[in-house]
Write a protein that binds this DNA or RNA. Structure first.
Lengths: 339, 339
DNA sequence: TTGTAAGCGTTATCAT
DNA sequence: ATGATAACGCTTACAA
């Protein structure tokens, strides 16, 4: 059985209130007493009971990371582990813990939401890669749950951290244009997700800035998975693009397979650029030119934002914050820029 | 402000005790009253306060997933997301939540451990892929924390779920032997981890069962990462193996690069087999023959085991359980078995 | 500076 | 079958 404040107090010859003050770093404790109490705490390994504490403080020091249903299938992508690493790193550094919820089963979603949010389990929530209009986000906001998103959302009340998807996609496509390509196709992500929509937007902007036409037959929608990349590439083949910008590396790899099947060489016949910089891209031949996102920083920043929100909620106008992080183009063999 | 039991009781015209009984499905409540109370609960969306509840029940319905320091760098491997998916799926189905802790920062480990474990935050813990003699595991066991490991451990008190690494490795190597190879090298994982040790053991067994010599110059240790695979392959090259069994796909991919540099073709000059079946292996040329582990089932089984432990602890002799799941060989191009 | 006491929202024991 | 009432371990006025 773990010790209680009362017992620690007894051992130190003070009341439980004093021990509480010591633990919570209240100033009004005699130095000598403080020393003695810490001594006992250290010796006994006393640790406050989390539930008892949060019952009165109304704080759990737990934040939730929610992966919405739509992306649980993408959860195996290195994106999420990296994001989680960024989040936990920051959380732990500030004494917070992380509760991970994959909303994979639609039947259980509502119940999970209730237990989690209304059960006062969490101080705040980070939602990763929701659909642009995911109702979950609206609900959290309606319920006044301190919230930070990874990836932008249509709800104007939502704070978020995002990668500059538009700029990054534009950079990638302009790179292809400068390499002399005129018929550049794109395999988009799901257009219901910000990442999908924005990267397409960047593609458009790049073409327009070079006065190239945006042609519908050069645009095919995928869902970020490799398989969808292959399928999309098959649909694009009749339009005979000389270059392809895929909105994810997995889709680029899928596209590569379709190109191989069609006896097209990369980059000689078709140049290829991906997005994400997952480890697999350096394993394939040719290594994939792609966009590298600061994923771990994305997570760390989201956590930072959320913790700030939590700590300053008292003085708090509900200030909506939006942070956009830059990405970088990593040029490798698949775009033909190398000799 | 969320409602309390008291308020719900008032609205239903009963005392808080009765509402509590209804919620906890106690038999002794008049049917009519039960109906009325549920009605109010549904209408109001009342949800019990988790902290208040666990203060008295001493249960949090949270289980912890701990990723020890040694493998946080491997956390980006698809292994962990899949494992987590298996774990959460089972947890959520039984009304449990998951707390994720990456013990990445050694300086904070002790404090995190204390807050987490001694703070009564968790009902039980799953530790993934610890080192075979990881002190963390001993400590958890000493502290009487209900525990299930993913991957075996030297502490005989520990229940675990593991893949049949020995059998799987043996199967992979025997496959190479049957293909006619006599000089088969292996790139091992870290020998301080069960997965590393056992896969080497399987390699040995395969050779021995075919009366082939086990030669030290054909064995090189890696750390599961791609880079270490390249380095290990370089060390193996002088021994001129005709086949290589790598204990992870990432290392196999690393080895492939080293082989390419040395102008050796796969599978013509050197056959290659990996372990894990990560997505990247079908992206490379030739596609990698590898061992597929039931990772998600591994996680689900671990969670099942732990929840069982928790639910039956009362009647509970501390029965140590060990479950070993089979893996399968996936034959693709890199071993030369295909025409 | 320190102790006493009330209260956080439950569950559980005991009457009724 | 139901309602008081006493914990659970902590924080926080309020008193001293």
């Amino acid at each position: 059985m773990p010790l209680t404040l009362e017992q620690v107090g007894e051992m130190a010859g003070v009341s439980r209130s004093t021990v509480s003050r010591v633990i919570n770093h209240h100033p009004n404790v005699r130095e000598e007493v403080r020393q003695r109490v810490w001594q006992v705490i250290r010796e006994t390994g006393y640790q406050p009971h989390a539930a008892a504490r949060s019952l009165v403080t109304r704080r759990t020091y737990i934040i939730g990371a929610i992966i919405p249903e739509t992306v649980t299938t993408l959860f195996v992508d290195p994106f999420f582990p990296l994001l989680l690493r960024g989040i936990t790193e920051t959380c732990n550094a500030h004494g917070y813990h992380l509760m991970l919820s994959l909303f994979s089963n639609p039947d259980r979603q509502e119940e999970m939401y209730r237990r989690l949010v209304h059960g006062s389990h969490l101080d705040g929530v980070i939602v990763a890669s929701a659909r642009t209009d995911d109702p979950l986000v609206h609900k959290l906001l309606d319920d006044r749950v301190p919230l930070v998103l990874v990836g932008r959302h249509s709800d104007s009340r939502a704070s978020y951290v995002d990668v500059d998807n538009i700029g990054a996609a534009r950079m990638a496509v302009e790179h292809l244009i400068r390499l002399g390509h005129k018929r550049i196709a794109t395999i988009t992500g799901p257009l219901s997700m910000a990442g999908g929509e924005d990267r397409l937007q960047g593609y458009r902007q790049a073409l327009e800035s070079y006065h190239l036409p945006v042609q519908e037959e050069l645009i095919a929608e995928g869902d970020f998975t490799e398989h969808s990349g292959t399928a999309a590439m098959h649909r694009l083949l009749p339009a005979a693009p000389t270059a392809v910008f895929a909105a994810s590396d997995s889709m680029a790899i899928g596209a590569l397979k379709a190109l191989r099947e069609a006896n097209l060489r990369v980059p000689e016949d078709v140049a290829l650029v991906g997005f994400d910089d997952i480890p697999a891209v350096t394993a394939i031949e040719p290594p994939l030119t792609t966009v590298r996102q600061p994923i771990e920083r994305l997570g760390a920043t989201a956590a930072d934002l959320l913790l700030n929100l939590l700590e300053n909620r008292l003085e708090g106008q509900a200030s909506v914050q939006r942070i956009v992080l830059p990405a970088e183009l990593v040029v490798r063999g698949s775009c033909g820029a190398w000799p």
